[in-house]
Write a protein that binds this DNA or RNA. Structure first.
Lengths: 154, 154
DNA sequence: CCGCTTTACGTGTATATACACGCATCATGG
DNA sequence: CCATGATGCGTGTATATACACGTAAAGCGG
């Protein structure tokens, strides 16, 4: 029986999805790198997703949920869910605002102590990666990631 | 009362975690870019995480689960869970091997048809990003991501 | 052939992510 | 004031991710 006509376009797309797709490359690298950092954070008892939330809560003081989510580039509802765990562990507090629609996020004293230990663990992981990959090279890469995010943002 | 002694190291780390951390930059960009691609794939009925699995199953023929997970740079158990949905939708099949420990993954005819429609939707998203970000620039970025993943891999 | 190790995999559990939908509160024009 | 639209959030649901642990099968030395 005769073979189907070749569809070089389709085959090329399939290859490209594994080797040239920005989404897939990001997701894959994200998985791998997250594991590395998370390994260090495990001893501190916080996750790779919680660390930036804790930091932002520390730096932005009492801040409404939505601006915090925007700052972190994550969905508002994702932040709501992630905050539940941090609140449970008494690392952040969620308080009412004068505007009663708003919930103000802030870091707690316990959270600040955890953050101090976390930054140490984080710097270890960061240093390892910087050493192996190159400090300036990583700065450049992160700059490109920000640029790509800007392009992809709506 | 006297202010606590400044801890410039801690404050710098906090800033760095938001602006210089490879993990956070990757996770954030990954979220944003995934949304963009997923938006296009929605019409096809598959997710951004499912697409590379479908492609790899297509290209690697009947392949054991673990090598497939390695190829995709994801945890073996994550792939198991993700395959459940694809199997449910009859896009991939999971069959026994002569070695009865092994489960062989392959794409189904239905999966191949879905993949054809998906590649079209994917190329649209990919083209948009390439246009806005620069084709060669994106190639370079993806190369750097692969290099970083190699560094972070154990 | 048998016991031990190694390999390939699934499951329980926990967290992460985000869309669709709905609710309460605020602001504003009349 | 008050109706109406805009704003800020939570919840239901579905998927994604991976660690810890357990199980079955294969390999292997004796």
């Amino acid at each position: 029986m005769a073979k189907r006509p070749a569809q070089p376009e389709f085959d090329r797309d399939c290859q490209d999805i594994l080797t040239q797709c920005a989404c897939e490359a990001l997701r894959r690298t994200s998985r791998t790198v997250t594991s590395r950092y998370q390994e260090n954070l495990r001893a501190v008892g916080i996750t790779a997703a919680q660390l930036p939330i804790l930091v932002a809560a520390h730096l932005m003081g009492p801040v409404p949920l939505s601006p915090l989510a925007t700052q972190l580039g994550m969905d508002r509802t994702t932040l709501t869910r992630n905050l539940a765990g941090l609140q449970e562990a008494d690392l952040v507090s969620v308080d009412p605002d004068v505007d009663r629609r708003v919930r103000l996020i802030s870091i707690t004293p316990t959270g600040r102590r955890a953050l101090r230990r976390a930054t140490g663990a984080w710097r270890e992981a960061q240093s390892h990666v910087e050493s192996a990959f190159g400090r300036e090279r990583m700065r450049a890469l992160i700059g490109e990631l920000e640029a790509l995010a800007s392009v992809a943002a709506r």
